[in-house]
């Protein structure tokens, strides 16, 4: 298995049919994936780690809570999990609707293994990408949090390309020399070298 995909640790299967659930678990296990299985949407939302990146294979037709409801809950909680739906023959329109709402894709039951593993590999690739993005955002936020409130204020104006003199006026009473010092601190603390990089940093990490 691709080492990048192996780095995605959270892989879940949610299906209310015991045999489907177990068989999918075994199939994934046989290909080296560690997987956690759940019999209901409630059980999954109750104990899975939905705030960390990973992938969930979710049956559309579950007992009390439908797969679509579970999906809506994940979205409401801003979960980074990549969702792959399992759907029966008659449920394709529902699956298509879910994909339009942001699910990664769907697998029709019964699904041949090459297609299943191929789609899952893509979904895990997406999960790994999301994990990388989240990590870099967390690192950026950690750097940002080392700035003082005044430095943050100055940083935003520097990113807009304003000269020190103008910043001193905008934030008056503030001395030009102090602005110069703040600017230097911002670049040093964030590990950046110019205002373009600073602008990109703020946009990329939505600080």
């Amino acid at each position: 298995m691709n080492p990048e995909l192996a780095s995605v640790k959270n892989l879940y299967v949610v299906d209310d049919d015991e045999a489907v659930r177990r068989s999918l678990g075994l199939l994934l296990l046989s290909r080296g994936h560690a997987v956690q299985v759940f019999a209901s949407g409630e059980a999954f939302l109750g104990s899975a780690d939905v705030q960390n990146p990973g992938c969930v294979i979710l049956d559309l037709r579950l007992g009390d809570m439908s797969g679509l409801q579970v999906f809506d809950t994940l979205r409401a909680q801003e979960s980074p999990l990549v969702v792959l739906f399992l759907s029966g023959h008659g449920d394709i329109p529902v699956a298509v609707e879910a994909v339009q709402k942001g699910a990664f894709g769907w697998l029709e039951k019964p699904c041949n293994d090459a297609h299943l593993l191929g789609t899952l590999a893509k979904a895990l690739g997406m999960a790994a990408h999301i994990a990388t993005q989240l990590r870099s955002r967390q690192a950026a936020l950690a750097l940002w949090s080392r700035l003082t409130p005044r430095e943050m204020q100055v940083a935003r104006l520097v990113a807009q390309g304003l000269p020190n003199k103008r910043i001193a006026l905008d934030l008056a009473p503030l001395e030009l020399r102090t602005v110069e010092a703040h600017r230097a601190h911002v670049f040093a603390k964030l590990n950046l070298s110019n205002s373009h990089e600073l602008d990109r940093f703020l946009r990329e990490h939505k600080v």
Binding site: D17, L27, P110, D113
Partner: peptide, 25 residues
Amino acid sequence: ALTLAHELNQPLTALTNFASAAKAF
């Protein structure tokens, strides 16, 4: 036919998966 399709889909799905796992093992 539709209920039948849904009901049969479950064991057929499980069967396909178990067979695939068997192949890998």
